[in-house]
Design a protein around this nucleic acid. Structure first.
Lengths: 225, 225
DNA sequence: GGGAAAATCTTGGTATACCATCATACGACA
DNA sequence: TGTCGTATGATGGTATACCAAGATTTTCCC
């Protein structure tokens, strides 16, 4: 925090493209577009107020992210999600998040523990609000602390991308189990394990949390067909 | 395999964009572009013989893949790779590949075992050729069998993407250790564990292989600075 | 009412133009 | 001579127009 930082003009490098990607991703994650919905370029141009170039490049980006699928000649659609995919996503998250939590617990300094505690408090605060998005954001922030403090930046990228794919599902599971029952308790166990520098306990707590979330997701998805 | 399949003309949905992405990705993986090299749009238009739109969309795709970085105002460059990133990549591969090998060993049918054995033979054959690319391709095919037969399609996507990031590194490690010493032996151990339906042994063999590859990579990268 | 032909929509692709920014080079002035 | 300012070119970001081909919808005729 020296003065050079303060003087630096943080000229936002916001390209229209980056904004469009964010808007579209948010819209998909928020469920504004359903899986299978067509993303008609010129319609999006109107809705976003930008040109086709911008929309097309944004779609390419989301395509590589796995949020959008481009059928051979039919144009882009919002990626569909079935239980088999969701199962794989939860399995991968289980590996990566357990590993990150263990690594975080292994190296956690007092400062990191304070960040984790603060993020946990954020979850508990969001738990009291009626809006699921607050809980969603708070949970994301909690895991971000864990991943980044463990130095697992690439794994965090991957997890975020995976969460994008199952975002609607995640919003649903957050709205049921996590909110009502064991979610905050699991988070507290994770935070406690990190506070105690107990990697094995942290990993176990993460696995328990994800196994439960996956089970809820399975019930939701298989119920819908 | 009914006749409709045989009659179907598999009209490749090859868009120019897809071709451009493949070309660029291959060029980067093959080392034709070094990390940090600028990707000047109009130059690529000439080299690929396509218009700027196609080039730009291809770059967006590769950007989301992590092979290309777009600096705020400097335009796209080939992503750089340092040991910290490579370390993370090997750690993630270790988790995903060990899990996939274990899952594959758990469920492997005689047909899967035959595929694995065949892929192993491919590695040993490529081992005898002077071109590293053959070994690269054969190794990729080996792991593809493992991942897809375990149903870990999303994990395979992730691993492929990660491998893209460390591709030059991977080519180097394949060219040293894997070729000369333990590489094929490790692969044989993995295949044997799958053949014996022994998940734990398969996972252990994968971890041993990757730990060695990561160590070679570390020496290479830290040596270069 | 069903099916074929036509109209329309949409995407993939190209070319072009315009602007802002950045770097470079060149020239003028102290 | 050295420094500053400006002209210029390269480049990325954005917008627009256009065309071909495939997909979809509509229409119209039997």
């Amino acid at each position: 925090m020296d003065q050079t930082d303060d003087l630096r003009i943080d000229h936002a490098p916001l390209t229209l493209r980056a904004l469009a990607v964010d808007r579209l991703r948010s819209a998909i994650i928020a469920g504004r577009f359903q899986g299978g919905d067509r993303l008609v370029e010129r319609t999006l141009c109107d809705q976003l107020g930008v040109s086709r170039s911008v929309v097309r490049e944004a779609i390419r980006y989301l395509e590589a992210e796995g949020l959008v699928e481009t059928a051979p000649r039919a144009g882009p659609i919002v990626a569909r999600l079935d239980w088999d995919q969701a199962r794989q996503v939860y399995a991968i998250r289980r590996l990566l998040e357990a590993d990150a939590a263990a690594a975080c617990a292994r190296v956690a300094s007092p400062a990191v523990k304070a960040d984790v505690a603060s993020a946990l408090a954020g979850i508990e605060a969001a738990f009291a609000t009626p809006d699921n998005r607050d809980l969603y954001a708070a949970t994301t922030a909690f895991y971000r602390v864990i991943f980044t403090s463990a130095g697992h930046h690439i794994a965090w990228e991957i997890v975020q991308r995976l969460n994008g794919r199952i975002s609607r599902l995640r919003a649903l599971t957050l709205g049921t189990t996590d909110r009502k029952l064991s979610g905050p308790a699991h988070m507290a166990r994770i935070a406690a394990a990190i506070g105690a520098n107990d990697p094995e306990a942290a990993a176990t707590a993460v696995r328990a949390h994800l196994d439960e979330a996956a089970e809820i997701a399975r019930l939701l998805l298989e119920g819908q067909g």
